[in-house]
């Protein structure tokens, strides 16, 4: 026990000040690429670039548009069509994977890391959709996950917020169908996978805090 306490002291405060302060880090290519140079739109395997702009919902964070485009390092790329003030105090999230590569799931889970410490903002995960205020959906929608997703949505207290986390869930990316094929999406969280700060920022937007 003594060893653990000493270790904690040695580390000091490592929790981010975000969203009051600026995010300390960002995963470069998970942020929206922005135009740097070149006369023509470069090749984009996701078809996300048109007329000098990148469609955040399609971008798969591959970086193949480099050097014409470079990461913006802006983690505020999410969009929310809701602002649920009832969730300002606390929000409980149920994570559901409908066909992910695993990385989005881990980035959602990363909000529990000490560096992000979501609990200081009243964010928590729940193991059942019955106790959830929001669903965080990751991955492309597979046929077999359509029904479990619908059931999770119906089990959630209404009105529940639906987050589509990552390019797969938002647009189907290069791998399949978007989640909107089965459910209305309230919040899009772009990136492949999104940076944990982007996910945290999206949660705050849905609660009307940002």
């Amino acid at each position: 026990m003594k060893a653990w306490i000493l270790r904690s002291f040695k580390k000091g405060i490592i929790t981010s000040k975000f969203p009051r302060g600026k995010n300390e880090t960002a995963s470069p290519w998970s942020t929206l690429p922005i135009y740097k140079k070149g006369k023509q739109d470069p090749y984009c395997p996701a078809g996300a670039i048109a007329q000098g702009k990148v469609d955040a919902n399609r971008c798969i964070s591959c970086g193949l548009c480099y050097p014409e485009y470079e990461p913006s390092m802006d983690i505020h790329g999410s969009e929310s069509s809701v602002s649920v003030s009832a969730l300002k105090k606390s929000i409980r999230i149920y994570q559901i994977d409908v066909g992910s590569c695993g990385a989005c799931n881990l980035e959602i889970g990363a909000l529990a890391n000490p560096q992000y410490d979501m609990t200081r903002l009243g964010i928590s995960f729940t193991n059942t959709p019955r106790h959830a205020d929001a669903l965080m959906v990751s991955g492309v929608l597979t046929e077999n996950m359509r029904e479990p997703l619908r059931r999770a949505y119906e089990a959630m207290a209404q009105p529940g917020v639906v987050f589509a986390v990552g390019a797969c869930a938002i647009s189907g990316s290069i791998l399949g169908k978007a989640v909107s094929d089965a459910l209305h999406i309230d919040v899009t969280v772009p990136g492949c996978p999104p940076d944990p700060f982007t996910i945290m920022d999206a949660v705050q937007k849905a609660r009307g805090i940002v």
């Binding site: 880090t25 470069p28 998970s30 996978p193 940076d195």
Partner: peptide
């Protein structure tokens, strides 16, 4: 692990080496 992912992102531009 979070420190490691940030170190990877700084070196390779992506926490999971995509691209």
């Amino acid at each position: 692990r979070e420190e490691l992912l940030r170190t990877i992102a700084m070196a390779f531009g992506h926490r999971y080496f995509f691209g």
